[in-house]
Amino acid sequence: MKKMLLLGAAFAALTLGLPAHAELKFKPGEDSKFHWANYDDLKKVDLKGETLTIFGPWRGEDETLVRSVLDYFQEATGAEVKYSSSENYEQQIVIDTQAGSPPNIAVLPQPGLIQDLASKGVLTPLGDDVAAWIKENYAAGDSWAKLGTYNGKDGKAGFYAFPYKIDVKGLVWYSPDNFDEAGYKVPKTQEELADLEKKIVADGGKPWCIGLGSGGATGWPATDWVEDIMLRTQPPEVYDKWTKNEIPFTDPAVVNAIDIFGKIATDDKMVDGGAKAVAATDFRDSPKGLFTV
């Protein structure tokens, strides 16, 4: 089987094989909510005796959901599917590729890491036909195809990453009831947001709940903060230049965004639990402060 990487989301390594005949969540051909033609086509692919290894970030309920999808692939093709995950996924995938034992499919949220692996020649391109399918079937197909295209070891561009499980980020959540009670208005600009932060602190509250904890990948949510602040303090053209390495991290525009986040994350008055809780709080637990503060 081909070795390939997928774009996805982000965990001690855990490997589990799916049962030979898992109980399918929805019975093929009978549940009218789905179009079963693709499943029927997949049944024509005989992979009995083959093993498909998948390395991904999902645990808990997310793992349950993705396994419910993989059940159909296994049932239709007869292949054995082995799914594994690691808290230190970025380091683990590098170790596995260097050792010559990568999974058939890896789910990674880091385009930069995929580019690095592609440039070392450890990935197999998915092919132009797959890129064309993305362009035709995704609403922003061209953008996703470009995001999955990287230069291989020979310097030639190839399509390596199929987007799957795309998550919306960059949203600021708040409690409307708490805002109404305190008389706060939802800010529409970065300046209005800064003013609201000061008011909440003056009223004895904590404006933000922040968690950067993520095992070996601790800190990655901070990059999202800086990216969002860049988009709100600079023209889109400047952000685009930054993503293309046309301006360095020492550029005043980037330094300003990092400084804005730094002043929030290191101020005990600004963060639920204080500055020490920022890195110690798992990013999945950080929203709990919305319901307890």
Rank of each mutant, 00 (worst) to 15 (best):
G121F: 07
K206H: 09
Q115K: 11
G273N: 08
P252Q: 14
P163G: 09
Y89Q: 12
E192G: 06
D128C: 00
F291M: 14
S175V: 04
T223P: 00
D71I: 02
D71V: 02
K43W: 13
N256D: 12
S85E: 05
N178F: 08
D41L: 10
L52K: 05
D282E: 05
K206S: 07
K244D: 09
D62N: 09
F73G: 02
V255I: 15
G158Q: 01
G158I: 00
K269M: 11
T53Y: 03
E237C: 02
E87G: 14
D240P: 00
V66L: 07
Y184T: 05
P187R: 05
W225N: 15
V293G: 15
G148W: 00
A202K: 10
Q92K: 13
E30H: 08
T77Y: 04
L14V: 15
T233P: 04
I114H: 01
A145M: 06
F283K: 04
Q234W: 02
G170Q: 03
E191D: 11
K199M: 05
E246I: 02
T218H: 15
I258K: 13
D46V: 11
G216L: 08
L231C: 11
A275H: 10
V66T: 08
D267S: 07
R284E: 07
I93R: 02
D228A: 09
S214R: 03
Q190R: 10
G29N: 05
W220E: 10
L7Q: 07
